[in-house]
């Protein structure tokens, strides 16, 4: 599997799995507003399981290669600059590892909370849980703020002119998702 040993190969895996999860998040949000279970999907049950399997695989690969890349990147740097200015990178891009870890924790919590009902407290009743959801969603969307557009660069799906448009659109999409999800938390609290 030379593909997975190559820095670009692994980057593509991170990008594709990340984008799959981002797409899931978009459907998830739409689902929150327009309940798909009320629509007439054929054989929705097996589709859900397929999606769950894909998400589980994506989550695993994304986390594994993401952390591996970060460790390697850390090793590739020596001592910090006494003075270093960033010109084009963003807070989101620089904190991908932390927003990623936080998102991972949040997703696990969310699954335990909603899907498996291991944790019973809901954000409707518990302020602490609501705060946790807000932080978790912020982390996810901060991650996507860099992640969505980054996917297109990694796949090479851009051009001289479209790069900046795609970057803007990716950031916009992340902000929209944040607004959409946070509304659910806020509206249900109020």
């Amino acid at each position: 599997m030379r593909f997975l040993e190559n820095t670009v190969g692994r980057k593509i895996v991170i990008a594709v799995t990340g984008q799959l999860m981002a797409v899931f998040a978009i459907f998830h949000l739409l689902g929150n507003y327009f309940n798909p279970y009320s629509m007439k999907f054929p054989d929705i049950g097996s589709f859900i399981w397929l999606a769950r399997l894909a998400m589980l695989l994506s989550f695993g690969l994304h986390t594994f290669f993401g952390i591996q890349a970060e460790l390697e990147n850390h090793k590739a740097r020596t001592g910090p600059y006494a003075l270093k200015k960033s010109i084009s990178t963003t807070f989101a891009a620089k904190t991908m590892i932390w927003s990623g870890i936080l998102s991972g924790v949040f997703i696990i919590f969310h699954l335990l909370n909603f899907t498996f009902s291991v944790i019973d407290e809901s954000f409707q009743d518990n302020y602490a849980v609501a705060l946790g959801y807000t932080i978790g969603l912020s982390a996810v969307c901060l991650h996507l703020y860099h992640g969505i557009a980054s996917f297109f660069q990694t796949m090479g799906w851009n051009s001289e002119k479209s790069l900046s448009v795609i970057t803007m659109a990716g950031k916009g999409m992340a902000l929209l998702l944040f607004a959409g999800f946070i509304c659910i938390v806020v509206l249900n609290r109020v």
Binding site: V8, G9, I12, N73, S88, T89, A93, S150, Q153, G156
Partner: peptide
């Protein structure tokens, strides 16, 4: 290290080499 699309390289390049070339490299790799 690995590229994670910060684009700081492009900002620092004295010759105006663009990150679009990294996209091209990625396409070539695929």
């Amino acid at each position: 290290g690995n590229c994670s699309n910060h684009y700081e390289c492009q900002a620092a390049c004295p010759k105006g080499i663009r990150v679009q070339f990294i996209a091209k490299l990625n396409r070539e790799f695929i």
